[in-house]
């Protein structure tokens, strides 16, 4: 069975290459900061399970220190100029889409075809991680397709990958750091405490109020925690189950499903959902870190009201 460990080794090697190439990049005044940062990420992928909890903690402190004290620059690997790209675009034509579209095709192949395959009673891919395994496989196949079809230099995947990685910069590690913060929050019981505050202080003797508190609470809590999955158990245990389902007899499937989707409206509005909201802003080189969130709020708010109405109408 192919497990997540294989993906981690691959990621570790790729980040190690980014680190080495960063150290050699004389165009980047902060090249050793970048080299150290990506080297720590590589170490985490390759040896995270052997560092111990404290060792991993120190590693995270190192990452935060490098980013926080402005030691990260932006590498400038030699790449093609805009003029060259226009000429290449003309020459290659629609062939250029093939490697990029290889990604979704291989991912779909992995999820739909490889995932159900069993070898000697064992699944070929770890079923829980089939999507990520398929994505890693797709990344390898697509690089091969790009190199052959577009005749690019053999080092270009690593140099161009490093260029994009430096474009994202410290924001790349933020989603993982926030997931870890969520674990510390859970350990300290932050969620339960907030849930308790909400249920203690807001009277919910009318059905509409209760629906509103649950939906808005899911969204608000998600904004604070960055993740609807963290908000769901707390809000549902505090309001959904005892009041909406218990007291008012709501349909559990409707309450939970629309409740979760109210949480997703919160996800659209919080910088703590970094992989959806901040990493894209960095990837698209937007000067305003919060530009994607600002584009989403006008959809998220009316949709939240829509959820509230849908739950009120459909659940009872």
């Amino acid at each position: 069975m192919i497990k997540l460990g294989a993906v981690y080794v691959l990621a570790g090697l790729v980040f190690a290459a980014f680190a080495v190439l960063s150290a050699l990049d004389r165009n980047n005044g902060k090249r050793f900061g970048n080299a150290l940062f990506w080297a720590l990420v590589s170490l985490s992928f390759l040896a995270g399970d052997h560092l111990g909890d404290l060792g991993n903690g120190v590693l995270v402190l190192g990452l935060a220190a490098i980013a926080g004290f402005g030691m990260l620059g932006r590498g400038q690997p030699a790449t093609t100029s805009p003029e060259e790209r226009r000429a290449l675009a003309e020459r290659f034509g629609e062939k250029l889409f093939v490697p990029a579209l290889t990604l979704p095709v291989v991912v779909a192949f992995g999820v739909l075809v490889l995932k159900p395959i069993e070898l000697g009673g064992q699944p070929l891919l770890d079923p829980k991680q089939a999507t990520l395994l398929s994505l890693a496989l797709a990344a390898i196949v697509a690089v091969a397709v790009a190199l052959i079809l577009l005749r690019q230099p053999p080092m270009s995947p690593l140099q161009e990958g490093r260029r994009l990685m430096d474009t994202v910069g410290w924001a790349a590690l933020l989603p993982q750091m926030l997931a870890a913060l969520g674990a510390v929050f859970a350990l300290a019981g932050v969620g339960e405490l907030i849930g308790q505050l909400v249920t203690d202080w807001i009277p919910m003797d009318a059905r509409l109020t209760a629906v509103a508190v649950y939906c808005l609470g899911m969204a608000g809590f998600t904004i604070i925690m960055g993740n609807a999955f963290a908000a769901f158990p707390v809000m549902t245990a505090g309001i959904g189950l005892p009041i909406l389902i218990g007291q008012f007899g709501g349909d559990p499937a409707v309450v939970c499903s629309i409740g979760m989707l109210s949480g997703f409206c919160g996800t659209l509005m919080t910088p703590l959902a970094a992989n959806f909201n901040l990493v894209p802003a960095a990837l698209l080189e937007l000067p305003d870190r919060y530009a994607v969130i600002k584009a989403q709020i006008p959809t998220a708010l009316p949709l939240l009201v829509g959820n509230l109405v849908l739950m009120y109408v459909l659940a009872f």
């Binding site: 990621a11 790729v14 490697p99 990520l132 994505l135 797709a138 690089v143 790009a146 690019q152 990685m165």
Partner: peptide, 18 residues
Amino acid sequence: VSAAYLVLPVIGVVERAG
């Protein structure tokens, strides 16, 4: 969570080619 950046190399290559 961070393993998904494995797609960046191929994206960089096709950007390089226009």
